[in-house]
Nucleic acid binder design. Structure first.
Lengths: 193, 193
DNA sequence: TCCGTATTGAAGCGGCCGCTACAGAACGAT
DNA sequence: ATCGTTCTGTAGCGGCCGCTTCAATACGGA
């Protein structure tokens, strides 16, 4: 095999494109994902995107994987603390969701899940993996509660619901987030006491 | 004006089309909403849909309005009871969402809100009105709580989040709904006592 | 220098989209 | 019977989509 020297360049260009596309998607959302428009914004052509990724589905999957890596790097700084109660966790995550650095990630992942809910490929496949990852991650962040074990999907549902409603009707959830966090925190206190 | 006799027929046909389309969307979702495919399933042509509705946006808006009317009829039977606490309300609505009659409505409205979150017209406009209606309706169904007034958007967020996650990853929220309802119910008990 | 592979540009294919132009059919009023 | 309005089928427009075909370029090794 003589492509040992050629493959790295090709993979490098592919990674560079995926990285640039990931930054673009984080800035502008998944809305404008046509091959031609995306290529133009990246300074290349649709022909090149297909050349390096093979298909649009593979491109989207690659971009989302890249975004996932960026997020997991950001979340590592947050994951080093001790496990917390569901109410505290929800409060922290909802506050995190208002962080300008985190907000693009929240919007993109909620958009992915929404497209998956509509049955759109390849988002449906990606979403299943993402939901599995997140519920597992949330599970590791929660104090085990033998009496009323909190399903991670419950907290994920709240975060997704708040984010979705906020995207559809900005401002509509201004009071909802704090109330939910405080409500669950009161349950925390009750089960802990 | 000699169209006094003609207009009713036209409006009648328009209403009949909107009604049939509403039933179709409730059965099969908003996914397949191309004019040609929709017309074929309705036994007519895209030409006729544009003739009676003027544009696809007006058609979609009309269909969603018709679905909203159907839902409000169904909900009237549910709205006659006394106001309840947030936890009880959430439990009832989540149970209602598993009702085979209600499920198509939940899926369609969540899909509408998801499309609105992506900025898709005309769903963005419709969603704003729907969210306003629902928060108002939820507000009338809740016992006023001077200490910790529950923002209706909080409950709406949970319902939307659970429905969205269930649509994207069927089965992922099996334990989440009951846990959330019970958690809020425990808060109910605490604020009431 | 010549060759072979990697890369890129230009043009285009077939398909779906919302929508329209045009022509005819149906039908009641005069 | 003629006209006018309402309705509907046919064909097509321009545009975007993912993707492909073909050809030209660049470049490294022999």
């Amino acid at each position: 095999m003589s492509d040992d020297s050629a493959a790295p360049d090709r993979l490098g260009r592919r990674n560079a494109l995926a990285d640039a596309a990931a930054e673009l998607v984080l800035r502008e959302g998944l809305g404008t994902m046509g091959l031609r428009g995306l290529a133009r914004r990246l300074g290349t052509s649709d022909r090149m995107l297909i050349y390096y990724f093979g298909s649009k589905d593979a491109l989207v999957t690659g971009i989302l994987a890249r975004i996932g890596e960026k997020l997991s790097v950001l979340l590592q700084a947050y994951s080093v603390g001790p496990p917390v109660s569901p109410g505290a966790f929800l409060g922290e995550v909802l506050a995190l969701g208002r962080d300008p650095v985190m907000m693009p990630f929240m919007r993109v992942w909620t958009d992915v899940i929404a497209r998956a809910a509509a049955g759109e490929a390849p988002y449906d496949t990606v979403a299943k993996a993402v939901v599995a990852d997140w519920t597992a991650w949330i599970g590791t962040r929660l104090i085990p509660d033998p009496d009323h074990p909190c399903p991670p999907a419950a907290l994920l549902s709240i975060v997704e619901g708040v984010t979705l409603l906020e995207m559809a009707c900005p401002g509509s959830t201004a009071a909802a987030g704090p109330w939910l966090a405080e409500a669950l925190a009161r349950v925390d206190g009750r089960t802990a006491g």
